[in-house]
């Protein structure tokens, strides 16, 4: 009997592998791919041109679209820059106490749960909350910081911080710190060494995190509703209103389709630029 060479016999057969993969495959196809295609179908049902024209006719919906994309963009830039600073400190600090505090502060919002986290911010931003209390010491009259775009952006950054810090921390840990020391010993300042040695090495990771944070931010619902209220409508807010107040499934599907298509587009672009492997590393 001839043993086929290409097969690694330490592994089980492809057929049993396929059977084991079946639940996962079914899960992906039945719960993710088919439903998403279904939504796009609903958005295109009847006359697609009218469905989308109706969406763009409404100034409120155009505003929500612009707000969602610009806020997500701003959030990803700030979260990744801040995340890079925090991750850098985490990767280079030798004091266990400092590292413990930084880890706690980054991971606490992650473990808190979406609603609790945003609730905590509502309490902090509220008119008789601690921020206004402290501002009062300096004679600044209390004002409500809630229900502003600023509050929503801060809330989103709060939620997205772990998504920015964790991949960048892993990226920094993969660095060869001797190169940095070499650059500094040859006369580069800390900043110059960082920009010329570290930045090129982690550029792809930074870009990947930027993309992931942006894409996740697009779908945010809890944060805009609790911290932004009706004054700061996001796409997700509109979707929920269409579904539960106006019973307009078509319009909800159009908004969702815009989100889905943008996400696919951005992710596909990112895969072309930095490759799937490095993008995958950015997903926690």
């Amino acid at each position: 009997m001839r043993i086929p060479r290409s097969k690694d016999l330490s592994l089980a057969s492809g057929k049993s592998g396929f059977l084991m993969l079946l639940p996962l495959l079914g899960f992906v196809v039945v719960l993710v791919i088919i439903p998403l295609i279904n939504v796009i179908n609903t958005a295109l049902a009847g006359s697609p041109a009218t469905n989308f024209a109706k969406f763009f006719e409404s100034p409120a919906q155009r505003k929500a679209l612009l707000l969602t994309f610009s806020a997500s963009f701003g959030v990803s830039i700030v979260a990744v820059s801040l995340g890079a600073m925090i991750a850098w400190w985490l990767a280079t600090s030798r004091r266990p106490f400092v590292r413990a505090i930084i880890w706690a502060s980054v991971l606490a919002p992650f473990w808190m749960g979406v609603v609790i986290k945003n609730y905590a911010l509502v309490v902090v931003f509220a008119k008789n909350g601690p921020i206004n209390y402290v501002l009062g010491w300096f004679g600044i009259p209390p004002s409500s910081m809630l229900y502003t775009i600023g509050a929503v952006v801060v809330g989103m950054i709060y939620s997205m911080m772990p998504y920015a810090v964790l991949p960048l921390y892993a990226g920094f840990r993969r660095l060869n710190f001797n190169q940095l020391r070499a650059a500094e010993s040859l006369g580069a300042t800390r900043l110059y060494a960082w920009v010329t040695v570290v930045l090129p090495a982690v550029a792809a990771t930074l870009f990947g995190s930027l993309v992931i944070v942006f894409v996740i931010s697009l779908g945010f619902y809890i944060t805009p509703v609790l911290l932004g209220g009706l004054q700061v409508p996001f796409m997700a807010t509109l979707i929920s209103q269409d579904l539960f107040q106006y019973y307009n499934l078509t319009n909800a599907a159009v908004s969702s389709t815009i989100l889905i298509v943008s996400t696919v587009f951005v992710l596909f672009g990112a895969i072309l630029i930095i490759g799937w492997k490095r993008l995958e590393r950015a997903i926690l």
Binding site: V39, V215, A236, S256, I260, T263
Partner: peptide, 14 residues
């Protein structure tokens, strides 16, 4: 990574 709100609508239909 998929936008949560859009996935929610998708699941709502299904």
């Amino acid at each position: 990574v998929a936008p949560v709100a859009a996935v929610a609508v998708a699941l709502y239909q299904v």
